[in-house]
């Protein structure tokens, strides 16, 4: 079973993503903020990281930077969910090391397709 780490401070959205992905048979580990995500992150354990941008303590961007700077963190796939949909924000996110970007609001169906793609790729 493919394992996904989800960091999202909004409980409702967390529920949306978790429900959507779990229905498709993924195992989803939840984190409510950036710190928690980093604590839970274990290189090799997760097939995908789904991060929110705006989170308390560490933002999604901080989390990416931190993970990418660790030895084994550079290979894990990262999908960023953000309400900041401006092009320059997207660029910043991709520059920081995210592999994919989806803007909020997002379609759960599309999210599934996307996640499948990413995991197949890997």
């Amino acid at each position: 079973m493919k394992k996904i780490l989800l960091a999202e401070d909004e409980a409702v959205l967390r529920m949306l993503v978790v429900d959507t992905l779990e229905d498709e048979g993924y195992e989803v580990v939840e984190a409510a903020d950036g710190q928690e995500a980093l604590d839970l992150f274990n290189p090799g354990e997760f097939d995908l990281l789904i991060l929110d941008y705006m989170m308390p303590i560490f933002s999604g961007l901080d989390v990416i930077k931190k993970i990418r700077s660790t030895e084994n963190g550079s290979r894990v796939k990262i999908l960023m969910l953000s309400a900041k949909s401006q092009q320059n924000e997207q660029d910043r996110i991709l520059e920081a090391g995210a592999d994919y970007f989806m803007s909020k609001p997002f379609s759960p169906i599309k999210l599934i397709e996307r996640v499948e793609e990413i995991i197949d790729e890997a």
Partner: peptide, 25 residues
């Protein structure tokens, strides 16, 4: 405006997301 739009997007994402689930699943 950008903050408002961000703030609006989060609940909007829930509304749209769950609606989509309700409609398609």
């Amino acid at each position: 405006v950008s903050t408002v739009s961000h703030e609006l997007r989060t609940p909007l994402a829930s509304v749209l997301g769950f609606t989509e689930l309700l409609l398609h699943k």
